[in-house]
Design a binder for these strands. Structure first.
Length: 209
DNA sequence: ATCCCGAGGG
DNA sequence: CCCTCTGGAT
């Protein structure tokens, strides 16, 4: 894989998806962290239907830390996995209050030590809420596309991320992640990719995954 | 029926 | 490493 081809892919993606942000509604690192935790196995549009009332009721980590679990579960039920997510949100908020004075920490280590926060969520918050290009978001879509596009031959998300970080300049990491995710959702599906409508054709090697 | 923008736990 | 957790969209 050459840097030139990587650059060409980036250019085509940028043209196809000019809006290089996530589709979650948020106004602070706290709100993005909560929305991202809710987004597992769920569309951003659905998350956006529950977050207004959620943030009105629990506007900051301190309020969320004191939330009643049953009330929290009721508010987020439609996003699926609601018991796990309620537990994660509660644990996350308590940890933020106890360990970080109620402020969402802006470092990979501190974020990942919060309950319910894995590498994907931490990367989203760092890149999109704090504007800290520390890595590339690698979720199932990005992993699949990186392999299909020949950007990485790895399986492990961490290794895929390293490959992407070598291939693309740091300033592109955050928008690249959003664009790959969007492309994966809209066009390059896991089962039946819509190659006819793909802005990356005919350059795509279509590596089978 | 089948799939989905993850993370924790055994 | 594999399993589990959930509702909603298609």
């Amino acid at each position: 894989m050459s840097a030139a081809r990587a650059a060409a892919i980036e250019t085509a993606l940028a043209a196809a998806y000019p809006d290089a942000t996530c589709e979650l509604d948020f106004r602070s690192p706290y709100e993005l962290l909560v929305a991202t935790i809710l987004s597992a196995q769920c569309t951003d549009a659905r998350v956006n239907t529950v977050t207004p009332s959620l943030f009105e009721r629990f506007p900051d980590p301190r309020a969320l830390a004191r939330a009643d679990q049953a009330e929290l579960e009721a508010l987020i039920r439609s996003t699926g996995f609601f018991r796990n997510k309620a537990k994660s949100l509660l644990g996350m908020a308590c940890a933020v209050v106890e360990r970080h004075g109620g402020e969402i920490p802006a470092s990979m280590g501190n974020l990942r030590n919060l309950p319910g926060v894995g590498r994907k969520t931490a990367n989203v918050v760092l890149g999109t809420a704090f504007g800290m290009s520390t890595g590339v978001v690698v979720d199932t879509h990005v992993a699949r596309l990186a392999r299909r596009l020949g950007l990485s031959a790895e399986e492990d998300p961490e290794k895929i991320e390293r490959d992407l970080m070598e291939l693309f300049p740091p300033a592109t990491w955050v928008p690249l992640g959003h664009r790959l995710i969007r492309h994966g959702r809209r066009v390059c599906h896991a089962r039946k990719p819509e190659c006819d409508a793909c802005p990356l054709m005919p350059t795509c090697p279509r590596i089978d995954v």
